[in-house]
Design a protein around this nucleic acid. Structure first.
Length: 795
RNA sequence: GCUUGUGUGGCGGAACUGGUAGACGCGCACGACUCAAAAUCGUGUGGCUUUUGGUCAUGUGGGUUCGAUUCCCACCACAAGCACCA
C-alpha cells in the first residue's frame, strides 16, 4: 500500500469511528487544547499551520491515550478585510469566497490527519454564530460598556476607505499608494481601559510563557504618578500628569497637545491663534508614521497671551503646543523638565528655554534612578527618588493642587469598522429615543445580500447604501429609525470562539452553563507571538466582562498560553509570494506524505524558535519512516522486550513522554531515531520492541504507525494506553567514568554503576595517561561526582 | 530609543541542577551493491597538529569556579514587537 492510501484509510477510520469526538459529559478528567483558528485566506494553508497543529495534535493524541477526555476543536475566523477585498476584486459575494476557501483549507487540514473534533466546527461568519457575537455585544451595550466617540482613523482619500495601521504602514495606502491622512469618525468603543488593572492582576491566575506575560504587561503600560494643577494667567487651571512630581522645581515651560481643548477655549485670548490653528492643521495631516518615525525633530508653537504659574514658587512659565504631547495619554498636557527629560531637553534647546537641574548628576533622565535633589527648596538634600516623590505629593496634596494618579497606555477598544464583511452592530438610531438595542429575539441582524461591497464616497460602510435595510423602526417607540451600518472588527468573533467550541451548536444560548462548568478554562492555548498582545488582550477582556456579569464561571479564559516559532523560507527569510520562497504543504504531502511532513516539522528545531525550511531535512524524515517500515522484516514473535534493548526502550519511553509534555518535539523525534538505530544493529527484534516504537511515534506520525501496528495484529493505537516505563530499568549496570586533571579530560574508564567513590579515585589515578600528569605533582584535591567524573586538581 | 528573543561545525540543531561541547538529522567524502544511475547499506566527518596523544574552539572582552555553552559584568551583531506614553 502506498502512503496516500494508508493515510486516507486511517483518516477514514478515525472519522467513521468518531475517535476524536469529545464528549460533554464524561467520567474521565477533561483537557482542553486550543490552536488559534485560522483565517481561511485564498492562498491556503501555510506550513506554519502544520507546525502548530501537529504539535498540539501530538499532545492531544497522547493525552487521550493517557485516559483524558480531550477537546481539540477547530473553526474558521472568516470575517474581515481580506475576504471583502477578494470579493470586490473578483465580483463574488464574500460569503461564497469564504465558503470556497474554507473548503480548500479543510481538505488541506484533513490531509494532515490532525485529530480535530470536526463535529464542533463553525465559522465566525455563520449567522448561528454571529447571532451570539451580537448578543454579547448587546450585553456590553446594556452595561454601559459601549459608547460612541469621535476618533481619528487612517484614511485613504483616493480609495475613500479607512485603513488599519498595517494597511497604512509607511504613511501610504497599501492598495493605491496614495498618502494616508487622519480623518475623524464617530466610532463605537468598548471600555476596555476600565479593565486595565484586572487584566494586569489576572495574569497571576495564568501560566502564560514569561515573554507573553511581559508583552501584555508592557502593552497595558501601567505608570504611577500624580496629576498636578497649574494656575493660568486667565483664571483657569491646567492639569498635567507626571510620574516625577519631585522635579516640579525644574519645570521651565509647559506643553499641551495640539488637540487640547484649552486652545479653543481661549482662542480670543491667544494672540497668535492663527499661527496655532495652522500648526494644529499640520499636525492633523501628519500620519502616525510621520508623527513618530519620520520626524524626530521637535516642532511646536508658543502660546502667546497665556502663561502658567508654578504652584510652588509663583514663577511664570511659558506655554507651548507641540505634537510630541499626545492628547490620548494622561491629560494631554505636561510640565516640561528639560534637565531630566530627553524630549523636553530637545524642545528646550530648539526654543531656547532655560534648563534647571534639580537632581544632582547632570542631564540624566528622571528614570535613571536616585540622585540628590538640588534647587528644590524643601526637597533639597533628599537622596532617593521614592522619598522625594512622596514628600512632594504630600506637600501638593495639602495645598489641594495634586492627587496621586495611575495611568495606563491601554486604551478603549475601537469597535467600529466601516466595512461590509463583518458582524452588523445590532443597534438602531431613533431621532426621538437615541441609540436602541435590537431586541434579543430579533437577532441575528443578518448581513443583507447585495451586489456591491465598495464603501460609500464618504467612507461609510457599504451597508449605508442599502436603504431598505438601513430604514427600520425604533424598538422603543415604533417610529422610524435607522440601523447602525458599522460592523464589528475581526477581533470580535475571535474573542469568544473558544467558549462556543464547548457547545458549538446550541441555538438557545451562546454556550450552556453545564458545558462551561464542565470544560472550564482552556488548559493549553497555542498561537503566534503576533497575537500575544491584541487578540489575547481582547479575548481576556471580553471573558472578564462576561465573568463580571455572571455569564462564565472563570475569571480567565486560558490557563496556559504558548507560542510557536515561525517557519521561514529556505533562505532564512519570512515566506512571501514576492520572495518566491513559499512552501505549499499540499506539495509536501503529495511528495513525502503527511507523516513525514509532520515528523519533519516537529524535528526542525526548538518549537518556540523560528526555523528555516529545508527539503533535504524533510526527505531525511521520510527516510526515517521508510527505515521503520523495512525494520518489520526483523520482527520475531515474542511479547517481551529484547533483554539487551530493555534499558534503552525504558529510557526512550521516559524521554518521549517528558518531551511531548514540554514541547520538546525535536528531541522526542531524535530519541526515537536513536532507538531505531539501535534496533537496526540487531539481527532480530521482538514484536513488542517494534510495537513500542510505533506507539511512541504515533502522536507525531499517526498513519504509518497505525498501519504497521495493524499489520502486526495489535489493536489500533488510538484506542490503546500510553506506555509507562519501569523506574528500575533506566540505568545500565556500567557507565563511562570521565577522568579530568585540572578540569581537562585525560581519560575514560568503563566502570560498574556501584563503584564506590574511593574506587573511582583509585582507578582514575592509575590511568596511564593520568599518571603522566600527576607524577611529581602535589594533589590539591580530588572532586568526585558519582556516576559521572573524577577531577584531580594538582599544583 | 525601549522591550523581548537569539548568537554553538558546511547547514538545522543537542547538552539534566555548572560536570565528556557538537546528540539526532542534513550535507559531504570514501567504500559495497549496480553495466550505470537512483535507492539502499557500511565507514568517516569542528579547526590545527608531530594523530592510542596534544592543542584551540559555543558572538567579543573580562570575572566567579577544581570545572562555564550554562552563572555575573561590559560590549557587538541579528530578528521581532512597541514607539515622543510625560
Amino acid at each position: 500500500m502506498n502512503t496516500k492510501e494508508i493515510e486516507s484509510k486511517w483518516q477514514k477510520y478515525w472519522e467513521d469511528n468518531n475517535i476524536f469526538v469529545a464528549k460533554n459529559n464524561s467520567d474521565k478528567p477533561k483537557y482542553y487544547y486550543l490552536v488559534e483558528f485560522p483565517y481561511p485566506s485564498g492562498s491556503g494553508l501555510h506550513v506554519g499551520h502544520v507546525r502548530s497543529y501537529t504539535a498540539l495534535d501530538a499532545m492531544s493524541r497522547k493525552k487521550r491515550m493517557e485516559g483524558y477526555n480531550v477537546l481539540f476543536p477547530i473553526g474558521w475566523d472568516a470575517f474581515g478585510a481580506p475576504a471583502e477585498q477578494y470579493a470586490i476584486k473578483n465580483h463574488i459575494h464574500p460569503k461564497e469566497a469564504v465558503k470556497e476557501n474554507i473548503k480548500v483549507f479543510k481538505q488541506q487540514v484533513k490531509n494532515l490527519g490532525i485529530s480535530f473534533d470536526w463535529s464542533r466546527e463553525f465559522s465566525t461568519t455563520d449567522p448561528e454564530y454571529y447571532k451570539w457575537t451580537q448578543w454579547q455585544f448587546l450585553k456590553f451595550f446594556e452595561h454601559g460598556m459601549a459608547y460612541k466617540a469621535k476618533k481619528d482613523i487612517n484614511w485613504c482619500p483616493v480609495c475613500k476607505t479607512g485603513l488599519s495601521n498595517e494597511d497604512s504602514s509607511g504613511g501610504v495606502c497599501e492598495r493605491c499608494g496614495s498618502k494616508v491622512v487622519q480623518k475623524e469618525k464617530e466610532q463605537w468603543m468598548l471600555k476596555m481601559s476600565d479593565y486595565s488593572q484586572k487584566l494586569l492582576d489576572g495574569l497571576a491566575d495564568t501560566e502564560f510563557l514569561d515573554r507573553i506575560k511581559i508583552a501584555q504587561i508592557n502593552w497595558i503600560g501601567k505608570s504611577e504618578g500624580a496629576e498636578v494643577d497649574f494656575d493660568l494667567t486667565v483664571n483657569d487651571k491646567l492639569k498635567v500628569y507626571t510620574t516625577r512630581p519631585d522635579t516640579l522645581f525644574g519645570c521651565t515651560f509647559m506643553v499641551v497637545s495640539p488637540e487640547h481643548p484649552i486652545l479653543e477655549k481661549y482662542a480670543d485670548v491667544i494672540k497668535n491663534i492663527k499661527e496655532i490653528r495652522e500648526y494644529q492643521k499640520k499636525a492633523k495631516e501628519k500620519t502616525e508614521f510621520e508623527r513618530t518615525e519620520l520626524v524626530k525633530e521637535k516642532t511646536g508653537v508658543k502660546i502667546e497671551g497665556i502663561e502658567a504659574i508654578n504652584p510652588l514658587n509663583g514663577n511664570k512659565i511659558p506655554l507651548f503646543t507641540a505634537d510630541y504631547v499626545m492628547m490620548h495619554y494622561g491629560t494631554g498636557a505636561i510640565m516640561a523638565v528639560p534637565a531630566h527629560d530627553e524630549r523636553d531637553y530637545e524642545f528646550a534647546k530648539k526654543f531656547n528655554m532655560p534648563i534647571i537641574e534639580v537632581i544632582k548628576g547632570g542631564e540624566s533622565l528622571p528614570y535613571t534612578g536616585d540622585g540628590e535633589m538640588i534647587n528644590s527648596d524643601f526637597l533639597n538634600g533628599i537622596k532617593t527618588k521614592k522619598e522625594a516623590i512622596s514628600k512632594m505629593i504630600d506637600v501638593l496634596e495639602s495645598k489641594k493642587i495634586a492627587v496621586r494618579k495611575t495611568n495606563y497606555k491601554l486604551q478603549d477598544w475601537i469597535f467600529s469598522r466601516q466595512r461590509f464583511w463583518g458582524e452588523p452592530i445590532p443597534l438602531v438610531y431613533c431621532e426621538k429615543c437615541g441609540w436602541q438595542a435590537v431586541p434579543y429575539d430579533q437577532l441575528p441582524v443578518l448581513l443583507p445580500d447585495v451586489a456591491h461591497y465598495e464603501p460609500t464616497d464618504d467612507g461609510e460602510s457599504p451597508l449605508a447604501n442599502i436603504t431598505e435595510w438601513v430604514n427600520t423602526t425604533c424598538p422603543k417607540c415604533g417610529g422610524p429609525a435607522k440601523r447602525e451600518t458599522d460592523t464589528m472588527p475581526n477581533w470580535a468573533g475571535s474573542s469568544w470562539y473558544y467558549l462556543r467550541y464547548m457547545d458549538a451548536h446550541n441555538d438557545k444560548e451562546f454556550v450552556s452553563q453545564e458545558a462551561l462548568k464542565y470544560w472550564g478554562m482552556v488548559d493549553y492555548y497555542n498561537g503566534g507571538m503576533e497575537h500575544a498582545t491584541r487578540h489575547l488582550l481582547y479575548a481576556r477582556f471580553w471573558h472578564k466582562f462576561l465573568y463580571d456579569i455572571g455569564l462564565v464561571p472563570t475569571k480567565e479564559p486560558f490557563k496556559k498560553r504558548v507560542a510557536h516559532g515561525m517557519i521561514l523560507g529556505s533562505n532564512g527569510e519570512k515566506m512571501s509570494k514576492s520572495k518566491g520562497n513559499v512552501i505549499n504543504p499540499d506539495d509536501m504531502v503529495n511528495k513525502y506524505g503527511a507523516d513525514a511532513l509532520r515528523c519533519y516539522e516537529m524535528f526542525i528545531g526548538d518549537y518556540s524558535q523560528d526555523a528555516a525550511w529545508s527539503d533535504a531535512g524533510l526527505n531525511g524524515c521520510r527516510k526515517f519512516l521508510d527505515r521503520i517500515v523495512r525494520l518489520k522484516d526483523k520482527v520475531v514473535d515474542d511479547n517481551k522486550y529484547s533483554s539487551n534493548l530493555e534499558i534503552l526502550i525504558n529510557q526512550t519511553i521516559k524521554k518521549v513522554t517528558n518531551d511531548l509534555d514540554n514541547m520538546k518535539y525535536n528531541t522526542a523525534v531524535s530519541s526515537l531515531m536513536i532507538l531505531l538505530n539501535e534496533y537496526e544493529k540487531q539481527d532480530k527484534i521482538t514484536k513488542e520492541d517494534y510495537h513500542i516504537l510505533l506507539i511512541l511515534l504515533n502522536p507525531i506520525s499517526p498513519h504509518i504507525t497505525e498501519e504497521l501496528n495493524e499489520q502486526c495484529g495489535f489493536n489500533p493505537i488510538c484506542l490503546s494506553k500510553w506506555p509507562t516505563y519501569d523506574e528500575n530499568k533506566l540505568e545500565n549496570d556500567s557507565y563511562e567514568l570521565v577522568v579530568q586533571v585540572n578540569g581537562k579530560v585525560r581519560g575514560k574508564i568503563e566502570v560498574n554503576t556501584d563503584t564506590s567513590e574511593e574506587e573511582m579515585e583509585n582507578l582514575a589515578k592509575n590511568l596511564d595517561n593520568v599518571k603522566k600528569y600527576i607524577e611529581n605533582k602535589e594533589i590539591v584535591k580530588i572532586i568526585t561526582i558519582p556516576k559521572k567524573l573524577v577531577n584531580i586538581v594538582i599544583k
